[in-house]
Design a binder for these strands. Structure first.
Lengths: 239, 239
DNA sequence: CCGATGGTTCGGCGCGGCCCGAACCGATCG
DNA sequence: CGATCGGTTCGGGCCGCGCCGAACCATCGG
């Protein structure tokens, strides 16, 4: 069994180097923000991890060096994403250990209702918000962009058909269709004048309704039907 | 945007605490010695990790505290073992990252052909084996499980449509769909009666063919097409 | 009882990681 | 061309982790 050890410490070395990279709160926050396959620029990641740009930069460099992230430059941005699925898998697995672990700290996160659907200022957020944004991207209504989506010509037609007041949204002085990072979903949803117009229409048609106690939204039965039909969107049942 | 963090840092915190525990060479060596489910006394682990008893003791205490290990006292020995399978899984997953990671150390390991696709007893293994298992999980044909996968109802239909003889596999006395740890990929692939039935079908349809010299398998052109179409599976070209 | 053995606790030391601000680089926009 | 912005690099300060040896506690054998 003498040979066991060398092979073993070999594997141990691999484990420790990778795990050490994931084993720091700042880096873990960065990695967690990237599970799901998205790519984010360094500045955003710095914000998410709540450190300065320089600190984030160092961590990012290490994560790339260690093979956990890849980076692609585009303009003056550098977008980081998980290297491959095995990294996501590892993060999942590690995370799974901590949930099943003892005395799980229940820090009373956002309620299921809030996570499912809520308003963010004057636009849709939560699972519904990002789901809708995804659907609009899939359908070619929106085009993805760095800090803003772009509304296509046929997208404008489609939204108008749903009686969203695209035209007057265009006249407003505020940003038209910026992205907004969803806290609970950690992905982007649609904000700005267009986002507001959509929420307004959803309220007016009573596809969603405000709850009185917080900013969560109730999706009505009619709303569910519309979302399913128009956007192929099945909302996860509130658990 | 100060509040952005709460939900995210929650998961990140879980990841980082667990990963930090695995992220030290000494502790990684201890953990690596315990994958496989065995239980070892503190002294032995100290030896394996090549540190003094006191140092090992501290690390062990932390690992227990952190929920990665459990301990049972017996006589004047204290036996440590992994807390549960999720810990082993996490270690495997993390290790898998380091394998696929950069500058793969060339220790004259198994040949590229063996790593790509081979038979393991009577089922598929190698990159193909785990890739297929992944695909079957993604498609809902299989459900993940502790020591075995579970074949879903629609999964049985799907496999039967590919002319895999699920029915007679069910009648065999051997385990139906256990997991099997892939030694090159260090992740799980499908074994048992079902795994054997699948390989049998793959051979019969000449999607894969045995090579004469070792247990590696050649994926035929037809096989590549089927894998791509049915399982969205692109095999990495043998380097 | 005593001595031997397995394990943990404690005190102290040193190294290395983490963080920040400031300076620097390159791309973009006017 | 300067101004701005996203990112990286560099220098310096701090804190905490990991290591050990020695003392301590428990168990087992005589």
């Amino acid at each position: 069994m003498s040979t066991t050890i060398s092979a073993l410490s070999d594997e141990a070395a691999g484990i420790s180097t990778v795990a050490a990279l994931m084993g720091h709160p700042t880096r873990a926050a960065i990695l967690a923000a990237l599970v799901g396959g998205g790519a984010l620029p360094a500045g955003t990641l710095a914000q998410i991890a709540d450190v300065t740009a320089s600190t984030a930069s160092e961590h990012l460099a290490r994560l790339v060096e260690g093979g956990l992230l890849t980076v692609v430059s585009s303009g003056r941005h550098r977008y980081f994403r998980l290297r491959d699925a095995s990294v996501a898998q590892a993060l999942e697995a590690v995370s799974a250990v901590s949930v099943s672990a003892p005395a799980r700290r229940r820090t009373a996160g956002p309620s299921p209702e809030m996570r499912l659907a809520r308003s963010c200022y004057d636009h849709l957020a939560g699972s519904l918000g990002v789901g809708l944004a995804d659907a609009l991207l899939r359908q070619g209504v929106l085009l993805p962009g760095e800090r803003a989506f772009e509304l296509t010509a046929q997208g404008a037609v489609r939204l108008s058909a749903l009686e969203v007041d695209v035209a007057s949204a265009r006249t407003r002085k505020r940003l038209f269709s910026p992205t907004c990072l969803d806290w609970t979903e950690r992905r982007f949803h649609l904000a700005g004048a267009l986002g507001a117009a959509i929420l307004q229409r959803f309220m007016e048609a009573r596809w969603v309704a405000r709850r009185t106690d917080d900013r969560s939204l109730r999706v009505t039965v009619a709303g569910q039907r519309v979302l399913q039909r128009e956007f192929d969107l099945d909302l996860p049942p509130a658990p």
